[in-house]
Write a protein that binds this DNA or RNA. Structure first.
Lengths: 161, 161
DNA sequence: CCCATTTATCTTGACGTCAAGATAATTTTA
DNA sequence: TAAAATTATCTTGACGTCAAGATAAATGGG
């Protein structure tokens, strides 16, 4: 069965037969798949008045456990974004009343970001729906395939982190 | 071996043992991997004065074959972006002298985007380096693993397009 | 043949991200 | 302990993207 990426590869093979496009096929499918998945995942967050970006921050705080507090630096590390992006995300979440900036007693350069009561409620509801949606998105793969795919992704990811 | 995603899952299992996080693991690895790969890929384009966005457009034109012309609508379909985004990309590429807007003789609503001579030279050089880089990025996977991964991605992608 | 609908592209305004640099506090070095 | 280097966060300005709507041309039903 020929998919969209196969058509792209066929074009390249016709136009540039000197290129070995096998890697392009894999990486192209990974990129397209990610785009589709990201859009589907975003829908659930929208239902909770969140975005993937804001959920990432709230989720990192929630899963860190009580008292649901982390520094901006900690949050940057887990979310793979720059400091400017994290400042902006925190600003938005603070405006929305979902997190608060607290003084860091140990280091006056830094602050501590904490979930508010409303932020906690919001992320609890969102993560429950999000996890259910994630299973839905993968249900076209049998258990064995899912495990194999996860294993291969892990292997490849290990080369980068 | 425990990777970054495993640590996230372990946190969720501790905090929310009611959630089945197996799908989150796979999707999290996919997302992080994509982010790492996108950054590495971008580096090569930067060397050629391009971005992933501009390369996508030039590459679509190049692989369509002579005379290297497509409509904005065709380009939107292959690149998965909205019309506003495509207009902007074409504007930038036109300013850079890499593509040109030509009248569409069959439909006066539309235009035809064509590679300029400089655009063709640029994309030829970029794609050669890009393909080599793609192989480099996957070289930590043996052939068999690469094929297996590609097959699983294809299967999952089929559910979305 | 004409009007309503659809199609192709562009415009606008808002948002999220990043890179680079600024600021202020901590840590290290001499 | 004072100066230098490092660290944590925020600021700024530019860019790419999107959703929604505008414009203009093609198409189809009456």
């Amino acid at each position: 069965m020929m998919d969209h990426v196969d058509k792209i590869l066929a074009q390249w093979m016709r136009e540039r037969p000197d290129l070995d496009v096998s890697a392009m096929g894999l990486l192209g499918r990974l990129a397209r798949l990610r785009a589709h998945l990201a859009r589907e995942i975003e829908k659930i967050f929208t239902e909770h008045g969140l975005t993937s970006a804001s959920f990432d921050v709230l989720a990192a705080l929630r899963r860190s456990g009580p008292p649901f507090q982390l520094s901006p630096g900690d949050l940057m590390a887990t979310t793979m974004v720059t400091s400017g992006t994290m400042t902006n995300r925190i600003d938005q979440l603070e405006k929305a009343g979902l997190v608060e900036r607290l003084d860091n007693p140990d280091d006056r350069r830094g602050v501590i970001i904490g979930l508010t009561e409303e932020g906690l409620k919001r992320v609890e509801a969102a993560v429950t729906d999000h996890v259910a949606n994630q299973h839905h998105l993968l249900e076209c793969l049998e258990t064995k395939d899912r495990q194999a795919l996860d294993g291969l992704l892990r292997k490849l990811l290990a080369a980068f982190e």
